[in-house]
Design a protein around this nucleic acid. Structure first.
Lengths: 195, 195
DNA sequence: TCAAAATATGACCAATCGGTCATATTTTGA
DNA sequence: TCAAAATATGACCGATTGGTCATATTTTGA
């Protein structure tokens, strides 16, 4: 990696948690100069403008989340354990795997009326998450440990909606009691489909 | 209502959809002067500052949503029909009952790290929504139309998490296919508890 | 009716916004 | 090694931000 590429990556890493916490609109380029200790002009050597930097930060945050989830999932062997690991990675929104909370949630709500590019990125991330869940269940069915009549595609949508909803509710409440209820019931729903 | 009170209310009504769509940080006082055709100084006669106006707009949006939901719910007689009406009011996030989408979602995600006042308001709204659902089910159990062993408090939490999650996912996707799946399954879960 | 109180106006303020650019420094590879 | 290319600096730009205030207009109730 050249010096320039290193600096570019460094800027993304430092700015990603700021964008995810404050939001794109509320994050100023001066926040980034402060966090990176780089001059303004240097930022603009690596990024055409704030929008491009923000888009990179969105990608970075979502990739980081995906990596953490997949690392936990891949540690497990059975489909059931993988699903549980997926859920457990996201079960504490007050200590989230990515600083600032779920980037799909944060950027999705900010962008849905205003930023087509970010909106598309978030949508793809949602689809990927569902595909991951669906893929695990497919494996479980093939291995004979899960109910082959399970409508797992619909379940993948529901499980993720519940988690996302639980995240907002718990973050706003300042405690994870609602998320605990949700996680418990998701696991119950999974268990009911085990053979 | 005095002239001043009327103007104050007028400002809130005009600014509420803007705050709910663009977000608090991204909404400028100049957006409000444009929408109301009032001078800047006049805005500051009625609101101490932008933060206070935004808080009023948050209240207004959430109250408006609550009113619409309750109006639909109160048209129904049985507990089952009331629950279905509750869900049906929120089932199309692309044509939401409140301009800009669910205010709890929008303001909740923007405020959770940055605005304690708004955070508290949203949290109360979430609790109210759950209490409404729980209250309907209590009525159903008392009337003998719903399973008395139903853990309806947990269900109230789950139903709302699913809806909120479905809203983000559908808004970002630009279509309501995921929300349709969620609504269908929520209704199925309700039906399973009918006697 | 009419004067006092409330409300509306818009020019104006300092601070901050995203972004530029001439210049200086550092990195790069032939 | 060394010159060309890439990168870093920070003063500077016009636009916009939230907010103020002297002044003008409208509303209010005795």
């Amino acid at each position: 990696m050249t010096k320039g590429e290193e600096t570019k990556q460094f800027i993304i890493e430092r700015s990603a948690p700021i964008f995810n916490t404050k939001g794109i609109a509320a994050t100023a380029m001066s926040d980034i100069t402060e966090a990176t200790q780089l001059s303004k002009g240097s930022l603009y050597v690596h990024f055409e403008n704030k929008e491009v930097l923000a888009a990179s930060a969105v990608d970075y945050n979502m990739q980081l989340l995906s990596n953490k989830v997949m690392a936990a999932v891949n540690k497990q062997k059975t489909a059931k354990d993988k699903l549980f690991a997926f859920v457990d990675t996201l079960k504490d929104p007050l200590s989230p795997p990515v600083t600032g909370g779920c980037p799909m949630m944060n950027f999705g709500t900010e962008a849905d009326d205003t930023n087509q590019l970010v909106k598309t990125k978030v949508n793809q991330a949602f689809d990927n998450a569902e595909l991951t869940i669906a893929g695990i269940i497919q494996q479980g069915i093939k291995e004979g440990s899960m109910n082959p009549d399970w409508n797992y595609k619909e379940f993948a949508t529901m499980i993720f909606a519940m988690i996302e909803g639980g995240i907002v509710m718990s973050r706003v409440a300042g405690n994870i009691s609602k998320m605990n209820i949700i996680v418990k019931n998701i696991k119950k729903m999974i268990t009911e489909q085990l053979i």
